[in-house]
């Protein structure tokens, strides 16, 4: 049962990745990333209880639900409302191509993860492969989207992948490190939000193409 739940969570993570790849609206993307954040936060609950203290697990889960599921989406929603982009910014690659790419990457990571030598360390190889896929998809989103909010979300997907890997492979390391990373992430997002506001003030849009003008 526990295993099935783990697999279900990884599946939902993959589906949310693909949702993020396929959606054009920032509002939908923020909802997607919040959903993914909440899902991730449930992962520590499945750690074998003899290796870690139960209190740590609960603190980590609650903190990450709060940060990934509530605070960060809230900030992002606020900044989108602030900058209010009228025009939809088309990504460099189309949505259907992105979705097919996401599928291929997910399938590929299922396939290759089975061949890695250190897989016996992880709590479920399925999670690890989902994390691998998320990592590549996160980078893909950052690389192909023009909209700066979408890029931040790509960064978050990437970070989420790190979170899963941290939880599932190195279950022996103290969870306080994870908590520290979480707080760093929060700080990072806050800085980004501030930066986005300033970029918007300066360029009057959030098209990252216009950042190229800065080097002149």
């Amino acid at each position: 049962m526990q295993n099935n739940l783990l697999i279900l969570i990884s599946l939902l993570i993959i589906l949310s990745n693909i949702f993020l790849l396929g959606s054009s609206r920032t509002g939908a993307m923020i909802r997607g990333i919040a959903f993914q954040g909440v899902l991730l936060s449930l992962l520590p609950l499945f750690l074998p209880s003899e290796s870690v203290r139960i209190l740590d697990i609960i603190i980590l889960a609650v903190l990450s639900i709060a940060i990934k599921g509530v605070i960060i989406p809230h900030y992002l929603r606020k900044v989108t409302r602030n900058i209010r982009t009228k025009k939809e910014l088309h990504p460099y690659l189309g949505y259907s191509v992105s979705v097919i790419f996401g599928l291929l990457v997910s399938y590929g990571s299922f396939y290759f993860i089975g061949k890695l030598p250190f897989m016996y360390l992880s709590i479920s190889p399925f999670n690890t492969s989902a994390a691998f896929a998320s990592m590549i998809i996160g980078m893909f989103i950052i690389a192909t989207r023009r909209n700066i909010i979408a890029q931040i979300i790509g960064y978050l997907v990437f970070e989420n992948a790190g979170f899963i890997l941290g939880i599932s492979i190195a279950s022996s390391q103290p969870l306080f490190i994870e908590i520290g990373i979480l707080l760093d992430l929060l700080a990072g997002i806050v800085i980004m939000v501030v930066a986005v506001n300033h970029i918007h003030l300066y360029f009057d849009n959030v098209n990252t193409d216009s950042l190229e003008r800065l080097n002149k």
């Binding site: 295993n3 783990l6 697999i7 599946l11 993959i14 589906l15 693909i18 949702f19 396929g22 259907s96 979705v99 599928l103 997910s106 399938y107 299922f110 993860i113 089975g114 479920s124 190889p125 399925f126 492969s129």
Partner: peptide, 26 residues
Amino acid sequence: PQLLFSAGIIAFLGFFLSFSKIFVWS
């Protein structure tokens, strides 16, 4: 079409899981 496409993605994931080695391990 997008809705049907996403249904296809879910169906495909299911098919994939039905022979995935990872699933057999666990």
